[in-house]
Design a protein around this nucleic acid. Structure first.
Lengths: 185, 185
DNA sequence: TTGTATTTTCAGTAATTACTGAAATTATAG
DNA sequence: CTATAATTTCAGTAATTACTGAAAATACAA
């Protein structure tokens, strides 16, 4: 299969960005290719189009599956495995949030909780423990936020995104309403 | 300088997480150490505490400065450079959002805009271009969202975070309010 | 079953990234 | 200025990560 220059550069760009996104170059390319492809692709097609070894494609697809970023399907009358990305880009974004939270937030949150629990009484280094406490609280809040996001249905999400500018006004309202309860910090 | 077991494991954990966060192990450790330290530290102290070469610390501090995650200061009567992290964890979180957006979103957004602009008329592969269009729109919305976040003052941010559970209700309200205007898509 | 198509594993190697020590540069006190 | 303290640079090396091809495992049609 052959890619037009525009698609080619999109695929290559995703490859380069891959490392920043926590996947490697070839996995990034593979994802981009699948994202742009109307029809599901099998490993050989990917391997051929991107000039990657078949085994590399196999490993890359495993990783994309671990990220839940691609789905596997079989085409009637063909025993090869075919892969595709969700049609709805919002779904993709939600998966990304979920998976990145799992990889980038949860392990640290878990360590912090354990550390802070095990040291209930006044610790040797109050400053450091207070610091960890603050980080823990912030991460808990972010985690709670992302839980809420992930629970939302598609339409609510669309609205949260589209009405970003409104949020600020709503927060302003809230500020008036709860200004007395927040005189601490 | 010597770290207690808890602080030690926090520092080591940050080191391991570093690679997932787009920094390397030693930079992660350096950041953790600075985060937990009440007083600013100089490069020699970091180097000694973490058993890293002085040159490695120098490079690491440069990277942390590029991320705007540490600030440099001089102590009176000492010509060494001292580094510390912001006291407010919310500030830190905002910086992180800003810097990650710059590194992980903006380059792709820019490529997509250019590609889509250069191909105004109906392209050879309508599906792929439509796909890019969708990704571009989503990324624009996320970018706009993060702009709004970054413009907010500290207190509003606190509220946005703390009232995550309320947001859903507000969206529900919005849904009623604008349900007729959103019959598209 | 058996044979064949397909995928996966994995040891070896290539490529990339991280780290170090020595030398060069910069900053500043005297 | 000069001397010294401090930081940075960078070439060389170490460590890690990515990739390949061959062999093993799996899936499935006949």
């Amino acid at each position: 299969m052959n890619l037009s220059p525009d698609l080619q550069s999109f695929v290559l760009h995703f490859g380069e960005m891959g490392s920043r996104w926590g996947i490697n170059r070839t996995v990034g390319q593979m994802y981009a290719l699948l994202f742009l492809s109307e029809d599901p692709l099998n490993a050989d097609q990917i391997s051929e189009t991107l000039n990657l070894s078949r085994s590399n494609v196999s490993m890359g697809l495993k990783e994309l599956q671990a990220w839940q970023l691609v789905k596997l399907q079989h085409l009637p009358g063909d025993r090869k495995e075919y892969f595709s990305t969700p049609e709805d880009t919002l779904d993709i974004a939600m998966t990304l949030i979920q998976e990145r939270r799992k990889r980038e937030l949860d392990p640290t949150l878990s360590l912090l909780r354990d550390t802070l629990l095990d040291s209930q009484e006044t610790p040797a280094n109050p400053y450091a423990y207070n610091r960890m406490q603050e980080m823990c609280e912030l991460m808990e809040q972010v985690a709670k936020w992302s839980d809420k996001l992930l629970q939302m249905d598609r339409d609510s999400l669309q609205k949260v995104l589209k009405l970003a500018n409104v949020t600020q006004k709503l927060v302003g309202l809230k500020a008036n309403w709860s200004s007395k309860a927040n005189a601490n910090s």
